[in-house]
Amino acid sequence: TTVVVGNKKYTFDNPEAAEKFAKKVAKKLGATVHKTNGTFKVK
């Protein structure tokens, strides 16, 4: 599962961990999490 934050990509074996990370980053940046085909995008 990939999490994309700006131009950085983070890969997780565990989708739950990926989602948690994405939400944490989004909260910090005041952004939102978008899920597309198993990829979480923070923007």
Rank of each mutant, 00 (worst) to 15 (best):
E16D: 11
A22N: 00
H34V: 15
K24N: 09
E16I: 14
V33R: 02
E19N: 05
T1D: 05
Y10T: 02
V33H: 02
A22Y: 02
K8I: 08
V3G: 00
T1K: 06
P15V: 11
F21L: 03
T36N: 08
A26P: 01
A17I: 13
A22D: 00
K24R: 14
K24Q: 10
V3M: 01
K27T: 08
T11E: 08
T1A: 13
K43D: 12
T1P: 08
A18V: 01
E16Q: 12
K24F: 14
V33A: 03
P15R: 08
E19C: 07
K20G: 07
A31R: 04
V4L: 14
D13L: 11
F40M: 07
T2A: 10
N7M: 11
V4P: 00
G30F: 05
K27D: 08
L29P: 02
D13F: 10
E19V: 06
P15K: 07
N14D: 12
A26K: 01
A17T: 12
E19G: 06
A18K: 00
A22M: 02
T2D: 09
G30T: 03
E19A: 07
T32I: 09
A31D: 03
A17R: 09
A22H: 01
H34I: 15
T2W: 13
V5T: 03
D13Y: 10
T36R: 06
V25M: 10
K20F: 12
F12D: 00
K9L: 10
V33S: 02
G6L: 09
V3H: 00
H34C: 15
V25P: 00
F12M: 03
N14E: 08
V4A: 06
K27N: 08
V25D: 00
K20M: 13
T2P: 06
V4N: 05
L29E: 03
V33E: 01
K35N: 09
K41F: 15
T11Q: 10
F40P: 03
D13H: 11
A18I: 00
N14K: 09
N14T: 10
T39C: 13
V4M: 12
A18E: 00
A18D: 00
A26W: 02
K28V: 08
A26G: 04
G38R: 05
P15E: 13
L29S: 04
K28E: 08
D13I: 11
T11A: 08
A17C: 08
K20D: 09
N37C: 09
A26C: 03
T39G: 15
T39S: 15
T1V: 11
K24T: 09
K24E: 09
L29Y: 08
T39M: 15
L29V: 05
T36W: 08
F21G: 00
T36G: 09
V33P: 02
T11D: 07
G6N: 06
G30D: 05
A22T: 02
N37H: 06
F40K: 03
P15D: 09
V3I: 03
N7I: 11
G38A: 05
A18R: 01
A31Q: 05
K8L: 09
L29I: 11
K24Y: 15
K23E: 10
V42W: 02
T2F: 14
N7Y: 13
A31E: 04
A17K: 12
N37I: 04
K24W: 15
T36P: 02
V42H: 02
A17N: 09
A26Y: 02
K8N: 08
T2L: 14
N14L: 07
V25S: 03
K20C: 10
A26M: 02
K23Y: 15
N14H: 08
G6F: 15
G38C: 06
A17E: 11
T11K: 13
E19F: 14
T11Y: 13
T1N: 08
E19I: 08
K43T: 14
Y10K: 02
V42Q: 01
L29M: 10
K41W: 15
T1F: 13
T36K: 07
T36I: 15
A18T: 01
E19T: 04
E19H: 08
K35F: 15
D13K: 13
A18N: 00
G30V: 03
N37S: 05
G6A: 06
K43Q: 14
T39R: 07
A22S: 04
A17H: 09
T2V: 13
K23P: 00
K24V: 09
K43I: 15
P15I: 10
K41V: 15
K9P: 05
K20V: 10
V33D: 01
N7E: 08
T11F: 13
K43S: 14
P15M: 11
K43C: 15
